[in-house]
Design a protein around this nucleic acid. Sequence first.
RNA 1: CGGGGCGUAGCGCAGUCUGGUAGCGCACCUGCUUCGGGAGCAGGGGGUCGUUGGUUCGAAUCCAAUCGCCCCGACCA
Length: 599
Amino acid sequence: MHRWSQLFIPTLREAPADAEVTSHKLLLRAGYIRQLGAGLYSQLFLGNRALNKIVSIIREEMDTIGQEFHLPALNPREVWEESGRWSGMGSNMFRLTDRKGADLCLAMTHEEIMTSIARSELRSYKQLPQIWYQIQTKFRDEPRPKSGLLRVRQFLMKDSYSFDLDEAGLDESYRRHDEVYRRIFRRCGLEFVAVDADSGSMGGSQSQEFMVYTEAGEDLIASSAAGYAANVEKATSKLPVVEDLAATGDGKPELVHTPGQRTIDEVGAFLGVAPVHQMKTMAYMVEHPEADEKQVKTVGKTRAVVAFLRGDHQINETKLAGVAGGELRPMHAEEIATVFQAPAGYLGPMGLEAAPHVRKPGVLVVLDAALEGRTNLISGANKEEYHLRNVTPLRHFKPTLVADIRSVNEGEPDPVSGEPLRIGKAVEIGHIFKLGYKYTKSMGASVLNRDGKETTPIMGSYGIGVERILTSAIEQSAAQFGGRGQTDAYALPPSIAPFQVVVTVTNVKEAELLAAGENLSGQLAAAGIDVLLDDRDERAGVKFKDAELIGVPFRIAVGKKLAEGKVEVLNRLTGHTEDVPVAGVVKHMQTLLCAESRA
RNA sequence: CGGGGCGUAGCGCAGUCUGGUAGCGCACCUGCUUCGGGAGCAGGGGGUCGUUGGUUCGAAUCCAAUCGCCCCGACCA
């Protein structure tokens, strides 16, 4: 049993001005953390206690499928050279030099180290599969740390790595992680969705992110009630069929004078057509990575990329960049003039010389899949103050290719079941993905297979952000309280709260109250409940406020009702209070906690 | 790295424009009263005004440089 009077729980009445995000304010006010520098936080008693509980849950679940390691955070340069990431990680990696002048780095992740162990120790297929994990501090020199514990430069990560003989084995290791992750997040009381994700700089094929919807999030995800979920960078939808406009005149593209009308809305209003019947032109330049030598050789370091979308649709630059094979930037005015021979506002497809193939030189012209099969659209005419009617893609102009390059919108039917999509900000709390052979191959790991032949093991890599679980639990709860009109209030799930119950003695100067509180706390502790006794010589109001601030899910007030042999039990998760006879409190709490852990 | 903002007591802020040697609320300490929703009264402690340099008789205040933090963007597991 812990006595509040002896603890260091520095709660604040007001949040420091630097804190903007809800969870950041609350973590500071509740005395969980204090800031040391940008993206660097000290975890105080309560913060550390909550994080330790999360770590325990993760460890317990991970132990059902893997083995816990603990690797050095300080890594020699050589290992990272082997995978090509010493330079690949760029300035996001903290680097340092030892007294002998040797280069070292602070690890951002541990594929290299795990693979180096696998390389030197794994010899036979009989040793596979292996799942190795650790819970360890990671260092990343973020360009912009922000939002309290959400994006920091030093954080705790559970990272695991699987080594399998073949793809079927990897599928299984991946599936087991998927299952365990879901159990971990459920036990931490999070409402999450698993989304298909972009594999990013880590390389690999299949990949899934575990996300918690919250306004503080940095990612946008789309999900539907039917279970479809994807990062907006990847999400698609099934669009209802659009009835095309009737052709005018002889049905061939027809010039119309549109003086001063440049935007989709202006042209639409001027001609009396809806945006769905218009086609918008987006002009970019793509810069190919040096690594893609072939591409750079045939089509040049940079090339023009022109995308056509429905008038009411938004371009998804991530998708387009994927198609174009490099980084995008908007075209400059001179480049527009060269490619289109027309000013922005009147750009269109006619007269463009499209590259016949992505790997062939010429302007890369991409038609969004939503325009495939559409007819008689309105587009720019590549002539100042003129637009065209009756433009039918694939008949009147040939793009290099047709691809999905747009962002889905809220409410559109999901591609699987047609349920409306919900789009919202979310925080990534976990990521699992199939790495493939990237590291085992580049670092030369191999085992002998059944036939005595050298075989490269296939790898998977799986991460969980420990602090992010705490942060998103707070965000999630604060949003619920906010919905009930209570701002800056939250309560943590008992599984991860620093304490499950706080016993508030309303007035410690009344000896009976204090004695009853101590007695009750002792009983709860003896029953295995994590209890905090608030025995401070403070006014009741102060203690109630503090109990709420630190997010403990259950509060037992020992006060005036003790005269009737009762104490007041508040379930902050539901807001429900009830008076319970002192003798029945332990049982009552056990029932409440049990119900909560099942929920 | 581009754009914006801010550094004055533990926290929140005023004072800076118009230079004259620092103030308010909360917190903290002491005493009395109060005691189930951030108490009241009285007394008290605490600040190199981010740092460095310059202008001036005199700088929190004006000028320059520099460091740090926050936000938007770019980037990112």
